[in-house]
Nucleic acid binder design. Structure first.
Lengths: 117, 117
DNA sequence: GGCTGACATAGACAGATGTCAACATAGGTA
DNA sequence: TACCTATGTTGACATCTGTCTATGTCAGCC
């Protein structure tokens, strides 16, 4: 197995086999679906992409909140992304900075990895 | 631009830059979010994984419908996966076979590719 | 202290979503 | 023809979700 040890409470560095390798289990499906669901909204996807692509790996809310919805709605979506384990946040002075959760991208990319015949 | 020509009606073989490379545009976000949204339900994720991991690359509905919900609900979810461009279906005799849409996995995996610093 | 800016929370609301039972359809078999 | 099996469709329902306005909280500045 390429999964040495389950590290943290959320999905860390690895979760399960690629979706195309073996049928995902019921419990794993629940957790993984929550991650994909978080990206399943256009506004959240844009916020996530803005954070992920921002210089220095983090972005202040004020830098990314121009997505066509109200400020509370932005805050609501960022919370969802945090709860899904995709983003982390930290307050510094007046501003709150968001950055990618360490292995969020890798976990999802692994799940979607094509299985060479 | 690395997007020579939009080929089909859905996202074909490529859509846009990885989420972590540049902020995704509004229109692209709409289309991509629909794909992730389709995987954002545990039942759909399991159905998708069952099809994707099935031998020969395709599976009859009767082989995958044991996911804890009624048959109409399974049918409903498979339709959603089809509409999202993730699965294709074909009727052969009494049975309907589902298989992975050609580049579905690759498109999503590319979007989630980490951008090496 | 009071004020202002940045962000989060609470509550309300319309619309979307997941589920089921009932029905429809399509193909095989007799 | 009639019947059965496999699957899709319809309509109804409760719940979830995205959005807003209003309000709260926290930090800096006067």
């Amino acid at each position: 197995m390429s999964k040495p040890l389950p590290v943290l409470d959320v999905i860390e560095t690895s979760c399960c086999a690629p979706l195309a390798r073996a049928p995902i289990g019921e419990a794993d499906a629940e957790r993984v679906a929550a991650m994909f669901k978080a990206l399943g909204d256009p506004v959240r996807l844009r916020l996530f992409s803005k954070v992920a692509s921002s210089e220095g790996g983090e972005a202040c809310v004020c830098d990314i909140q121009d997505v066509g919805v109200s400020q509370p709605t932005v805050s609501h979506h960022l919370k969802k992304l945090r709860e899904a384990g995709l983003l982390e946040s930290e307050r510094r002075g007046s501003w709150v900075y968001y950055r990618l959760a360490p292995s969020a991208l890798a976990v999802m990319a692994d799940l979607l990895a094509p299985v060479r015949a």
